[in-house]
Design a protein around this nucleic acid. Structure first.
Lengths: 227, 227
DNA sequence: ACTTACATGTCTGCAATATGACAGTCCGAC
DNA sequence: GTCGGACTGTCATATTGCAGACATGTAAGT
């Protein structure tokens, strides 16, 4: 792929904001692009952690399996997000599974190349630190949710974040499409599929949301999905 | 306090391993020491996050309160650990409470001084990244525990980590002192005080541990506290 | 149109664990 | 030594939400 195109792809990453054009060019040179379709696995636990990934389009989920086959999803990532960051955090291998949820365009970069760049640019280092801090904060909030909130609160506040992150604001509320399956929501909120179904239907009952397999519509303001 | 003493205090931090003597000296110059006694709060949520702390002696817990007064402890830190790292991760304020569990000696350093040092020493930056990665891994494991394990497994595997981290190896097992209160364990494992009591007594019944308010003794090998 | 695979809707019982209450115990302060 | 406060031990009871079962619905492929 032409450097120019790659350069363009690298634009909307917060983490790379404020980098000099020269730096960006160097970044683009070391980047390789890939298209991954739904259900593809980008890495498994124990896979060597040599690469950092930039998600340009689509959605990726980062999750774990228990010994007895249960699943829990740690993060659902959209365009502009970075994953596989354990590579630059001194880990030999991955701990999680990264799987494509919606067909994705991913830029991959060798960790050494990225670390070289970091050495050259303190600005980049700072941005990386900021990004990691943000990641840390998110996962701490996840723990807090698990401990303090009950199943239906967890589901509701997940929907809040989901709509906020991936939805489009409409005159009379918000619209997200496509929507997730109930099982996917269950894995994201540490609940059972049946519970998700129930909560979703209750919310529809109260006319807060409307949904199908294809979309989720929030009628009115985001703060209706609180606690 | 004399620079020499500070220097000595800064020795056993993994994060600072491999730093040049000159660098260490500079670090020591910018550090201020403090003694904090049990139950003292080092910072609250919303407090400005300007300082990074090195824990030289004692124990600190990092925890959160819910709106309705429940508590969950995210980490229990011992000598050699670092906290308040959100300062160098681009956060304006703290999210958690840091409280002294056992009388502590703490080195505090302004985040700007630390960041200056990081700019000068890529080695330090690398170590910091490694440390953050380790923190991230720990909290992900915490999430996994909360989702996959039941109450008694969470308590048992907490005891495992606790003994491993803070205990002394004896001929016939391990010894930790002092021990925590049942409520403290409950907060660390997202369980109820009564459940902790029950599990602890069951383990004593099976002759795996012996405990009182003052100590916890593990009879035999660590892997008795598994799953 | 028919088949197949996967997703949703709904019910019921059950197991885990929180909660509340209260007695007993320890320990340091006075 | 005794007093008060915090911690521990043990109930009985309440609740939450998971798990299994099964019917219904939906979409893609042939």
């Amino acid at each position: 792929m032409a450097e120019k195109t790659k350069l363009w792809y690298l634009q909307n990453f917060n983490m790379l904001e404020g980098m000099s054009p020269k730096m960006m060019m160097e970044l683009a040179q070391n980047t390789s692009m890939q298209n991954n379709s739904k259900k593809e696995i980008i890495y498994f636990p124990e896979d060597a952690s040599n690469t950092i990934y930039f998600l340009k389009a689509g959605k990726i989920k980062i999750y774990r399996l228990s010994e007895d086959g249960k699943t829990t999803t740690l993060q659902l990532l959209g365009p502009g997000e970075i994953f596989g960051e354990s590579a630059i955090l001194g880990q030999e291998t991955h701990d999680n599974i990264a799987e494509v949820v919606e067909d994705a365009v991913v830029c991959a970069m060798d960790k050494r190349d990225f670390q070289d760049l970091m050495e050259k640019s303190p600005k980049l280092t700072l941005s990386v630190n900021k990004f990691i801090g943000w990641r840390l904060r998110k996962i701490q909030a996840h723990v807090e949710d698990l401990v303090f909130k009950n199943a239906s609160q967890r589901i509701t506040s997940f929907l809040h974040r989901y709509v906020e992150t991936f939805g489009k604001k409409m005159v009379d509320g918000w619209m997200v499409r496509p929507f997730l399956t109930h099982q996917e929501i269950a894995d994201l909120t540490a609940t059972a599929r049946q519970t998700v179904n129930q909560v979703l239907n209750e919310l529809a009952e109260q006319d807060v949301i409307k949904f199908s397999r294809r979309f989720l519509q929030l009628k009115g303001d985001l703060d209706q999905l609180e606690s």
